[in-house]
């Protein structure tokens, strides 16, 4: 039985070196050399510098921009910095990632959605509300919204920016990504890219 101890330890050490160091470091080296943009997070930049990642969602609170989906990510409560259980809502906190984990029979969920829906109705939304507009994503960092959601926000954004609606709509439609090969993926709009395009429109 004792004869099994040596192979256990030695193989563990060898594989730790191989798969724990050599493998990830090698992949990192190749990635950084050959595919630096993806390897470093697919960052998007403007003249002011990096404004975000093409893959990571962001929180847009003002009316001038299209809004992302609600996000359930949290951050440390600054009033209680040492108590890890005290957190505050911090949508699109990319140092964290979480969903709401509320089930379909959760009163909390129904209340939260109801509040969001009421807010929208108050802001003038009519008809059915796009589902993704009031539901949180699994990661809390979803960079996309549905085309319906984007189009529903056109009126408010156009008004805030003093632009004609069809111009804004055109920007939206130019940023709708469809299914690759008609089959792979879902119709979606990247909110950050959309807002960057919007800014480019306004500045031009």
């Amino acid at each position: 039985m004792l004869s099994q101890i040596r192979p256990a330890i030695v193989l563990l050490v060898l594989f730790t070196a191989l798969t724990g160091l050599a493998y990830p470091l090698a992949i990192t080296g190749i990635a950084q050399a050959v595919m630096p943009n993806q390897a470093n997070g697919s960052l998007l930049t403007t003249s002011a510098g990096p404004v975000g990642s093409a893959l990571i969602g962001q929180n847009f609170a003002t009316d001038k921009y299209f809004h992302s989906r609600p996000s359930a990510t949290q951050a440390q409560d600054p009033a209680h910095p040492d108590d890890s259980s005290k957190t505050i809502d911090a949508p699109y906190n990319a140092a964290n990632s979480t969903g709401s984990n509320l089930g379909p029979t959760s009163q909390k969920l129904l209340d939260r959605v109801k509040a969001d829906v009421d807010a929208r109705r108050a802001a003038g939304a009519t008809g059915v509300i796009p589902a993704d507009a009031v539901t949180t994503s699994a990661s809390g960092l979803d960079p996309h919204i549905s085309p319906e959601n984007a189009l529903a926000q056109v009126a408010a954004v156009a008004k805030a920016r003093n632009l004609p609606e069809d111009k804004v709509r055109a920007v939206v439609e130019a940023n709708i990504e469809g299914r690759a090969l008609g089959l792979i993926g879902e119709p979606r709009v990247n909110v950050l890219r959309l807002n960057m395009a919007l800014d480019a429109l306004t500045s031009s």
Partner: peptide, 19 residues
């Protein structure tokens, strides 16, 4: 949620990613 006015055509999107 559908009773609250959500569009049912996309199904249950709570906890899901669009892409």
């Amino acid at each position: 949620l559908t009773a609250l006015g959500l569009d049912p055509s996309a199904g249950n999107l709570e906890g899901k990613e669009i892409r």
